[in-house]
Amino acid sequence: MTTPHKDEFGNPVGHPVENWHGCDMPPRSDMVGDHVIVSPIDVARDARHLFEANKVAKDGGRFTYLSTSAFDDFEAYKSWLEGMASVNDPMLHAIIDKASNKAVGLAAFMRIDTTNGVVEVGNVNYAPALSQTIGGTEAMYLMMKRAFDELGYRRYEWKCDDQNAPSRAAATRYGFTYEGTFRNAIVYKGRNRDTAWFSIIDSEWPAIRAAFEAWMAPDNFDENGKQRKRLQDLRG
């Protein structure tokens, strides 16, 4: 157990953060990986690809825990994207598959707190073409890398409806630590949401980054594209 720091009155306090000056806003520039490009949303470029990619799903279940429902009308979807693109927080990004050069998913930096170095990843919507792929995992790695390595954020958050089992499982797989559930946190779509909170902090990032990079290495996949080791196992 570490000895707590104390102030001049002998009260226990947090450890000093030397030379802290806050962080910059995430830049509106591409994050390029081997399989995907995470790029600030460009409605003219991305809207049709995203709409068609989501229409492949048999139903609208991928939108159950998002703030919007599935879009059946392209113009309505395009209008929603235009509204999202007009603000800096959430800062929405398209996830573009490099093989097809088409957008197949969305994710945003949001609740961006530059003063304290805290940022959340949210509005995550993977179309079937991105779900359970190397590119889907790589997209999350690229966004974490920007937050921690490029911009020096101290805390990276993931929040979801407590009922959203796939999202909770994804957070755990990516290396987030569950911190608790905020009860009666939000009312959306006419129902209550208890919000589960997860985070990664800067001291944890080097080990998590190494696991991502080991998992994505070509030799971690056999000739059929099946993983040899799971991401969570590579974190030990």
Rank of each mutant, 00 (worst) to 15 (best):
G117S: 08
E138W: 07
Y178C: 13
T195D: 04
K226N: 11
D219N: 10
L130H: 00
R28C: 11
M143L: 13
T68N: 13
A207I: 13
A47G: 10
F63Y: 15
G180V: 09
M143E: 01
E120K: 03
G135H: 00
R45L: 09
L151T: 07
P12C: 06
M25N: 15
D219P: 02
S131L: 14
F198C: 07
S39C: 09
A127F: 01
F212S: 04
A103D: 00
G60H: 06
G10C: 07
K58G: 15
W197D: 07
E204K: 01
N116S: 12
P12H: 01
V124L: 13
F212M: 06
E75F: 14
F109D: 01
V36S: 05
Y188M: 15
E157G: 00
A85N: 08
E82G: 10
W20V: 11
A107I: 06
D42I: 07
Q232Y: 14
V56K: 11
F63T: 04
I41F: 01
F63S: 06
C23E: 00
E75L: 15
R183L: 10
I112Y: 04
V43Q: 02
F176I: 08
A53E: 03
T2Q: 08
D59H: 08
M1A: 15
A169K: 13
I112K: 00
I37T: 14
T3W: 10
S167P: 05
P206D: 06
F51E: 00
S67A: 14
F212D: 00
R209K: 15
R168D: 01
D219C: 09
G180K: 07
R45E: 11
I96K: 06
D7E: 08
T177E: 12
M84V: 10
T114G: 00
T133D: 02
D219H: 10
D7Y: 01
G22M: 08
F74A: 07
S199G: 12
V87T: 15
L106R: 05
V38M: 03
D202N: 11
A94D: 04
K55D: 11
T64A: 13
D24L: 15
A169S: 14
A147T: 03
T64C: 12
W80S: 09
A127L: 02
A171H: 01
A108C: 11
A53H: 08
W20K: 04
T133L: 13
A139M: 09
E82Y: 06
D202Q: 10
P128A: 05
E75K: 13
G117K: 06
M140F: 15
W197E: 01
A210L: 12
N19R: 14
A107W: 06
Q132D: 14
D72S: 15
R209T: 07
R168P: 02
D219V: 09
I41S: 08
N123G: 04
D97Y: 09
F148K: 04
D73K: 05
L234H: 05
D194C: 05
R228T: 10
Y178I: 10
V104F: 05
T2P: 07
R209S: 09
A85E: 04
Q132S: 14
G135D: 03
T3C: 09
N101D: 12
R173G: 02
K226F: 12
Y65I: 01
P206M: 00
P12M: 03
V104T: 03
S67I: 15
P90I: 06
T172Q: 11
E18L: 14
D97W: 08
R228W: 10
E75T: 10
W20E: 08
A147E: 01
T68M: 13
R191M: 02
A76W: 05
I95S: 04
R173F: 12
P206L: 01
